[in-house]
Structure formats: structure tokens, C-alpha cells
Amino acid sequence: MTQRARKRSNKVALVLMMPATGMLMVACSSEPETSAVVYSSVQECQDKNPGADAKELCLADYKQAAELHPKVAPKYQTLQECEADFGAQRCEVAPERQYASNSSSGGFFMPMMMGYMASQMFNRPQVIQTGAFSSPGSQPRDNVRRDDDKQSSSFAGGGGGGGARSAVQPQPLYKSRDDSFTYRTADNNAVASRSGEVKVPSRAMTPSVGGQRRIGGFGATAASFDSAGG
């Protein structure tokens, strides 16, 4: 009998919207965590990773995190509100936002960046290989399902295996007033209590940009709809 070409994807995976556990994989798959490294400064990164390459990678990660910092950091109307959450002398003025219209007087305040998180230094592809689950042997993937394939087919979770799948976007970290040891992401996910290598839950991977107010040149018609899609 000839085998037909599959009509469905060989595998599907999520890297951002990752499940806590797979339905059938509860017993056999670990928590979907990703390896990352927390640094208090670019200097610390460079000290811990000697080598010319590392020096530049450290700087690049730091720059990305620093660039993201004003975008993702929680914003407060007043310095007092900010310091109430992040502690005295731990807040700064958010850069002037360049709105076209609507710009009201008075700036915003945000916590200072206390460190940053990046992918593991030496295995940090920007691209998550979709074939990352196939074993090194080159069996055709088409109609053959292997057991190792089966287990992780639907989910991109799990920290085990190749290690070359770390997908953490470099991002700033903060420390709150009431817990000044813990590094937290802008979305308030605690990721580490000291610098160094960490396993982070996948949801900590992508910081979300917090918008404080509507700019509103688009979107007005949507008010009368449940969904703008169809």
C-alpha cells in the first residue's frame, strides 16, 4: 500500500503561548521552562563570559534590554506611587512620550532597571528551529511517528534535550520594595533571587508593552463589535 502524504502539520508548537503542561504529557514532560541567565550589569556578564564574542553579545543583550526598559516598565503618574512599589531612589522619570495628540502635561515615572535577563550565552538562536524535536538520525518525518517525536510533538516546552532552544528575549528586570532580592520582569514575574543561570516559566519570555492611554486614531469603529474579525 502506498502511503499518502499527510494533510496535517508534522508538528505544531507554541513558543509564546505555552501550556503549563500537556494534557497527555503530564507524566512524561517536565514543566515548560526555558533556560536564561540573569545579570545585574553588563560588566557582570562580561566577567562571567570571557572572550571577545561574549563581550559583544553581552553588550548587545544589555542594549536590547535597556531599549525595552522604557517601553515595558510599569508607568506611574507620580513618583510617590512608583516608589511605593519599588522603593526610595529606585524610580526615574519615564522618557517623554511622543504622542501626536493628547499629550497631557506631566510625565510618567517608572522603576529603574536593576538587571536584565538574556538567553544562555552560547546557545542562543533567535530562531526556534521547528524541527528541533527530531532526533539526529535522519528518518523521514512524513508518515512515521517516532516515540520521541510523539512526546513533544504538540508542545515546545521542556528544558531537556539539545539546549539550543532557549528563546528568551533580552529584557529588563526590576526589584520591588517589599522584596528587594528578587528580580522580576516588567510583568511582575519573579525570575531569580540572584544573578546567574535560571529556569524561567515560558510566560516570562516575552514582555508586553504597557500602554497607558488610548491614542485612538484607529479602533473607534470596533466599539459596536465583539470582534473585529470574522
Binding site: P95, Y99, S101, V209, R214, F218
Partner: peptide, 20 residues
């Protein structure tokens, strides 16, 4: 990067995010 559509702004004829 995700951006709520309502927070998209414009400056000098170009669309910008909340940070400009």
C-alpha cells in the same frame, strides 16, 4: 511585538508605538 491597535499613534505622517 504586540501592540493594542488603539495605542498606535502618529508622528509626522508615520505610525508610531507608544514610545514614538
Amino acid at each position: 511585538q504586540y501592540v493594542p491597535l488603539e495605542t498606535v499613534g502618529q508622528r509626522a505622517g508615520q505610525f508610531v508605538d507608544v514610545m514614538g
